[in-house]
Design a protein around this nucleic acid. Structure first.
Lengths: 190, 190
DNA sequence: ATGATTTTTTGACATTTGTCAAGAGTTATC
DNA sequence: GATAACTCTTGACAAATGTCAAAAAATCAT
């Protein structure tokens, strides 16, 4: 598991032996159950997880009581309710694990300590924030510019290993359409 | 102008005299004309601007030749084609000034130098990246969860000083609807 | 395996939104 | 201040998507 984390961090910055040890020290292994919420609407999220495999779903309940899936995060990645973690405001999204899985957990305090003590980790923090920003920007761009059908096909192409296991209703709200429309769309693609 | 920049940076981190001087040294004052593109589709964006007043529009041309406004950025703020600036990939959005205005320009090289030399600026970089991420996340959330009408009213409330001067067509595509639909919506609100 | 639960598909119909075209209003320019 | 260029509104109609209800298919738990 820590193996997977190093590989991930190494994909954007080189860490020394010491730095690897330091981050290992503050990480806590956890087992997460399918459907478990790692961040919850109304609660402040004070931790970040690192997942080496599997994926997470971001969702909330809209004014009419429907669950709306706003995002999927595919491993390897850090996962948190980003806005809540950063600002300390209660999360408006729920973040849900879609599988049983092993993760590494980091507390906000430990992470901010790291930022203070090691400029290198401050940089890691910046790079990850930039990654999140770029990801959201792309998601936004796709939502505004591509039809639901194009976005669905893109999701299929980019995450073939997962997409066919995601319940249709989740994908539909992620695409901003109803389940029925997605079902019909799918049929017409074949 | 630099005055306004310090005030802005100070709103999230305290800078020393030296640090203020350093950032002044690498900033270049520029005059920007209304409608000027500060980042352009297909071109790599290697600079960040700081604007003390006014606002910018992010847009691109969709597959059918229509201009789609994907975002507005209101001063005070740093402005760039974020994804292109960070990744070095050609920008997919155009970023357009909506007024004549004065801005400060920073080159990528100078900024990255600053990151290397001063951990404090590395942190500023992180905080700004986080701000961008949070902003996109919120925009995404609104797009997926609120009706066009709610989003329009929200835009009105949050930026009353600008919204009534933004051409309707820009706002409409930002909301993901047509100009005609927005016009009818507006009528029904009154 | 079998019944229960969940997920997906389908149909009929209502509603929303888009499209196209024309006209009214506004703003800029000479 | 008249003309042109742009922006906004309106109407009639078409197309896309949503809603509700029910059936079919897939999955889960005992």
């Amino acid at each position: 598991m820590t193996e997977s984390l190093h590989k991930y961090i190494n994909s954007f910055i080189q860490l020394s032996k010491e730095e690897i040890e330091v981050i290992e020290e503050i990480s806590v292994c956890k087992k997460i159950k399918k459907n478990e919420l790692i961040a919850e609407n109304g609660k402040v999220c004070r931790k970040v997880l690192f997942a080496g495999e599997g994926y997470f779903r971001f969702f909330h309940i809209d004014s009419r009581g429907n669950e709306i899936t706003s995002d999927f995060y595919f491993a390897p990645s850090f996962i948190t309710s980003y806005t809540s973690f950063i600002t300390g405001v209660p999360s408006f999204v729920n973040v849900q694990a879609m599988h049983d899985m092993d993760v590494l957990e980091f507390s906000k305090e430990d992470l901010y300590d790291l930022y203070d003590k090691y400029p290198k980790f401050e940089r890691v923090g910046r790079l990850i924030a930039e990654k999140v920003a770029i990801n959201s920007e792309e998601h936004l761009f796709l939502l505004l510019n591509q039809t639901a059908q194009t976005r669905y096909q893109r999701l299929l192409e980019q995450n073939p290993q997962y997409v066919n296991t995601i319940p249709l209703q989740y994908i539909a709200s992620y695409l901003g359409i109803t389940q029925e429309t997605l079902s019909r769309m799918r049929k017409s693609i074949k």
